[in-house]
Design a protein around this nucleic acid. Sequence first.
DNA 1: CGTGGTGTGTCAAACTATTGACATGACGCA
DNA 2: TGCGTCATGTCAATAGTTTGACACACCACG
Lengths: 143, 143
Amino acid sequence: MTQATTIAERLGVLIKETQALLHQRMDERLRPLGLSVPQYACLTALHDTPGITGSELARRTFVSRQSTNVLLQGLEKRGLIERSPDSGPRRERATELTPEARSLLARARTQVAGVADAMTESLPAAELRQLEALLARCRDGLR
Amino acid sequence: MTQATTIAERLGVLIKETQALLHQRMDERLRPLGLSVPQYACLTALHDTPGITGSELARRTFVSRQSTNVLLQGLEKRGLIERSPDSGPRRERATELTPEARSLLARARTQVAGVADAMTESLPAAELRQLEALLARCRDGLR
DNA sequence: CGTGGTGTGTCAAACTATTGACATGACGCA
DNA sequence: TGCGTCATGTCAATAGTTTGACACACCACG
């Protein structure tokens, strides 16, 4: 059996497990709104940083810029975003949320906030901040 | 701009980011061995729990049992696993690692251990245990 | 006895994402 | 002024995954 799993390896599995559950819960709440988790992530980033470029969007949502491109095409067809046809400095197209997207995103945000609250409901604020700090150091160790 | 992102939501993004980086680093180290991350996860679970069923394997690796099935077919073709042709109590087929798989997995484990160490190198043992405990409570809050 | 419910394995189709490739435009630097 | 490098957007092909469906086999219960 020789498991010999270190605490570091167990932590890796735990990160994956928590992320998988989080994704699942978010998906359950976003699907009634007609949104997938990557779509929600895109709209959120677009909301927080208006006019952001597609490649930067891809980096923030942790997928390839090709995937982001087809995802944006879908959002555009649904009238949730508008992309300026004229290109900017580096051939980039400015992308903006439409009013419909803003109201949809507002509803989505309350759903996601509910999931996030469920995740952290058993943790006092102090421990929550500590968890964030510790996990950030793990992330930094990986890049 | 109205971000209003709570610490709980930031933590969700941080979990996703850390998991994405971890997956990327593991992939970089496993690919030279001819293994993908899901394949590594399968072999590890099979090693830790010999004779495990395919469905249980799917649950532990956080994917559908259909994906696990095609993954296992690939591993079988490569001679890394053997599946008993006769079915057990619930039509399940016992799956075992071959000797080649064991030696391959041993090398893969050292690679993954290196990644896990890099992730946690800046954390003392006490804080590492604390991180594990806190994250486990987040996971429990999600299910 | 049966009979509905549950768990398993597997196939096919649809979807999502990645990899590879190319054209375009900006920038630094000789 | 050229020229190599880099970043972006996009297309095509590929790989990986999920969804939906079906056939078995057990098991608890009437």
